[in-house]
Design a binder for these strands. Sequence first.
DNA 1: AAATAATGAGACATGAATGTCTCAGTTGCG
DNA 2: CGCAACTGAGACATTCATGTCTCATTATTT
Lengths: 193, 193
Amino acid sequence: MSQLRYPHLMATDRDSVLEAAVGILSRRPTAHLDEIARAAGISRATLHRIFPGREALILEVGALGLRRFSAALDTARVEEGNAEAALRRLVDAVVPDAALCAFLAGENQLYDHEEINDLWELQDARVRALFLRGQQEGVFRVELSAAWLSEAFFDLVAGIGWAVQEGRLAPRESAFSLAELFLGGALRRSDTP
Amino acid sequence: MSQLRYPHLMATDRDSVLEAAVGILSRRPTAHLDEIARAAGISRATLHRIFPGREALILEVGALGLRRFSAALDTARVEEGNAEAALRRLVDAVVPDAALCAFLAGENQLYDHEEINDLWELQDARVRALFLRGQQEGVFRVELSAAWLSEAFFDLVAGIGWAVQEGRLAPRESAFSLAELFLGGALRRSDTP
DNA sequence: AAATAATGAGACATGAATGTCTCAGTTGCG
DNA sequence: CGCAACTGAGACATTCATGTCTCATTATTT
């Protein structure tokens, strides 16, 4: 196989196909391989040469999403400093891959794959830990469980991904909109703490 | 057909099947009809007798979701009184049907059906109008667009539906968690306005 | 209790998406 | 220039969900 020959080039090639696939799959998870191949600018035959089949493709999309999300957590250094600042850094880091996260959130078929599941659990735990830490530091509200804060955060990231992809939200506004709504809520306040 | 014979009984029967279908479809939109039939406690043959086919079933699930959501908007009287109070009423009214809304949010296949699309647009406009009114009244933040507030609200409703369905959130906490996070955000505040 | 209707189980055909193959055209590299 | 690898287009078989049908069983009504 060629990926053994040109590992680096092949990796970016695979990733570019995967990103094209996300663009289609995040909207319609049942899209035909034909459509995905066309979106990636390659033929169905080549798509099959890169990924053994649909299942493998979906799996790799999930793996890519988790890699990106993991990298975003690293970039944002979520374990360091003030919890609110850490979350804002996470928002900035994750917004570019929001579409990928939207796919992850909606695709529960991946959850019977052990390796993917473990990796997801790992990243999810990091996010939950961030909220728990923030609650202990008195930064985040304690009336809302850390699990729900984490869940809601993912939901809104996915929502950002969908909204941007369908042109309902300007990409430049996305990070601000996500951070402000999630952290500050919808209510107007006279004094900003 | 029997629905002509016992219109009322048949309606509730249909709805109960549809609700069972939502339980499966909101998680896995590609679930086989076999699985849906078993979840509804009927055979695949009977499922076919009630709904001509998969497409018809999906369509009716969407229509049910929109009926419920429309009814929730009516029940909450979203056009009346203080916008914040109206939204809190809406949360209470919509939470019982959160799973249905989660399906609606994720199912973009319905959007090429004119009747469904129009009905959806109507309800969506009511929600947007609520946020716009709230902004004009000085209740909701103006830095976030009404469109995004509406989008985010749907995302969180869907998230509530998923979380409850998968046991990650207690049903009794769901309305509180949704309203508090959406309205107040994740940040702890010294004074509650 | 008899008759009628509804249901469930299963067989069967159909169609669509997938997986596999071949071959001609293209690109890239020596 | 020539060779090797890669790609795209298409044909083909296969698989599987769907749609349709029949028949025995159950329930419902009269």
